Amino acid sequence: MKQAPSIPISGERLTTDFYQQATATVAKALIGKAILHRVGAVWLGGWIVETEAYLHVRDPASHSARGLTASNRSMFQAPGTLYVYPIHAKHCLNAVTESAGQGAAVLIRAIEPVWGTERMQSHRGPVNMRRLTAGPAMLCQALDIDRRDDGRSLTHDPDLGIFEASEVPPRAVATTRRIGISKSAHRMLRFVDPQSPFLSRPYRKK
């Protein structure tokens, strides 16, 4: 039997304790971490450069604001659960945070593509490398993640996870308003690597 390819970085998988922190803390700390998804014999992924926090209290932009439903059930599961939801026939991926039952998560908006870029390009079509994963729907398409992956564990799934690479220096993190929403648009809950060219929308210091 052919052995599955090993994870392409030397680093520790983020554990439940990491995701149990306050959602904004997790969203900020995820900048510079590596997200990886194994598809067949190929690992796909890159460095996280943009996130948004969606809170379980006083946040009408959060999916949990309408309470537990069949479609957002994974958002109320254990910290470190993958919550994938559909949007305009595409998908967005989130890491569930804090305690089970609360309904908080971090939307991963963009990564710097590093591993399996040829496969990711085959999923996305002929696009510029800077646009390959520069947006939540583009990211899911490139990583081959859809609604069928909803509920998978980022902490235990051998083919999916977020990792800290000890040999990589920490990145600068800037905070901005969330984008693409109409409710609670003033909240400063978007976190970015301000120097990254792979953001879904360029960072502009005000």
Rank of each mutant, 00 (worst) to 15 (best):
I108G: 05
H91D: 00
P158D: 04
S184L: 09
S184K: 05
Q121E: 00
I87Y: 00
V173Y: 10
L132W: 02
R187G: 05
F191P: 13
G103R: 05
S182A: 15
R119E: 11
T133V: 07
E167W: 13
G180Q: 01
I111F: 03
K90A: 11
D159Q: 10
R147S: 03
S122H: 10
H186P: 10
I108S: 05
L139Q: 04
Q121I: 03
S184I: 00
R187Y: 11
T176R: 09
E167M: 11
D146Q: 04
E164F: 14
R147Q: 14
L139M: 04
M129Y: 09
E167H: 13
A174R: 15
M138K: 15
H156T: 15
P170S: 15
I111H: 02
S166T: 06
D150L: 14
Q141C: 01
G135W: 02
F191A: 04
T155R: 11
R124W: 03
D144P: 08
D157E: 12
M188D: 09
S166F: 06
L93M: 15
A104G: 11
R187N: 14
R109Q: 01
T155E: 12
R152H: 10
R148Q: 07
N128F: 05
A95K: 02
A134L: 06
S166H: 11
R131H: 13
S99C: 13
D157N: 11
T117A: 11
A100T: 10
G125F: 01
G151W: 08
I181W: 06
M120V: 08
V192W: 08
I162M: 08
V114T: 13
R171K: 14
R130S: 06
